[in-house]
Simulated assay, not measured.
Amino acid sequence: MQHVLTLIAPPGGLPATLPARIHDALTPLGANAAAPDWLSEGEAVDLPFNGLAPEQAEAAARLALDGAAVDVIAQSSEGRRKKLLIADMDSTIVTSETLDELAAFAGLKDRVAEITRRSMNGEIDFATALRERVAMLKGLDVSALEETWKDVRLTPGAEALVRTMTANGAHCALASGGFTWFTGRVARWAGFTSHHANILEDDGQRLTGTVAEPIFDRDSKLATLKRLCAELRLTLADSLAVGDGANDLAMIGAAGLGVAYHAKPVVAASARVRVDHTDLRALLFAQGYRAAEFVA
């Protein structure tokens, strides 16, 4: 079959009767659907089909689901397994916004978080917002970085996503508008091949309130995606990009599979693929991996 529609729900959230319901929604539109292929019983299923564009099939499936907590991804069957992953860190690979949490040690979390919110929604320029937030932290003891790190948590499914893809030969890159101080640690923890981010400056004891130039921003993420593809002799179609904020939109739009993950409204509205209900293992199911193939 030329295309595949993947339905993904929290474990146990996909009833065995659901594929037939979706099949019945696609058939009147001219789709020829094959038998369902369960990637994980009660959790993820592939519905191969012909005769309908992926966007049309996805829209019809969402309508049939009537608001159910199920993620829907329709795409070409060819080239599903990607050879490059490029992922945002804050609120994507980790559950928190590390800069906001760092600001808590200066008593500025709410003020900094509001600037972060506006930046991630695309309301203000990312680089300007980053410099403004970092300047507010001038004089903060560097020990606050370690204290912040203690509370960092990987997003459910993050390690499975990265380690499964690397075990299958993919290059996994962490690309963050945050700081290398955190990305280096997260990269080692989750199993990323490389990491790319901003450098937060200090004098050995306290933060200087500055970040090294040039700022690693939206354009830098896209440039990193393209550079890695060139270095690895891949096409953009071979890549998967995932993020939640406005500074991720360029790389999400350029990648072969670009995913808005529990994203801000501006990102969810613009991305071709959305994951709204499930964890990061959804990106493995989207590539056709079976749960039995996941690397813990």
Rank of each mutant, 00 (worst) to 15 (best):
A241S: 11
D244N: 13
T6P: 06
L84P: 00
P28I: 06
V242W: 09
P156S: 04
S239K: 11
A129I: 09
G122V: 12
A212F: 13
D71C: 08
L200D: 02
A167I: 02
E213V: 10
L137D: 01
Q287D: 00
P15C: 01
N247F: 14
L137M: 02
Q56E: 13
D90K: 10
E78S: 14
M165N: 07
H3D: 12
E114V: 13
R117F: 14
A173L: 15
I73E: 03
T278L: 10
V70D: 07
D88I: 12
R218Q: 05
A254H: 10
F182C: 12
A106G: 00
L65M: 06
G139P: 00
Q75G: 10
V152W: 09
A230S: 12
R80H: 09
A263S: 15
G107V: 00
R62H: 06
Y261A: 13
A187I: 05
S91M: 10
V45G: 00
H171S: 07
H3M: 08
H262M: 13
P19W: 00
A237S: 06
G42M: 01
N247R: 07
R233W: 06
V295I: 15
S176P: 04
A9E: 01
L29P: 04
T193D: 03
M136Q: 09
R118I: 05
L52M: 03
D244G: 13
L257R: 07
D202Q: 08
F294K: 10
L47R: 01
E159R: 15
A190V: 04
A246Q: 12
L234A: 04
A87Y: 13
G79C: 05
A190H: 02
E41P: 06
K221H: 11
H23G: 12
L102T: 03
A187L: 13
L26H: 07
S270P: 07
P15S: 00
T166K: 12
R133Q: 03
D110F: 12
P54E: 10
F179R: 02
A291M: 06
D279V: 15
V275D: 09
T208W: 04
F216L: 10
S176R: 09
A34R: 14
D202A: 14
R118P: 07
A170I: 02
K221P: 05
I252Y: 15
L52F: 02
V4P: 03
L7F: 01
S176V: 12
H262N: 11
I124K: 03
N32G: 10
G191F: 00
F182G: 12
R206S: 01
A250M: 11
F105Q: 02
H262V: 15
A170K: 00
Q56S: 11
E101H: 00
K82A: 08
T148I: 07
W38A: 02
V72Y: 11
P54M: 10
R233Q: 14
A20E: 03
G13D: 10
K150M: 01
A16P: 02
G42I: 01
S194N: 11
T210C: 06
D100A: 10
L174S: 08
K221T: 08
Q2T: 14
L108E: 04
E41D: 05
I93A: 14
R188G: 03
P156G: 08
V267W: 12
N168W: 01
M165H: 03
R153W: 15
G245L: 09
I215H: 01
W189F: 08
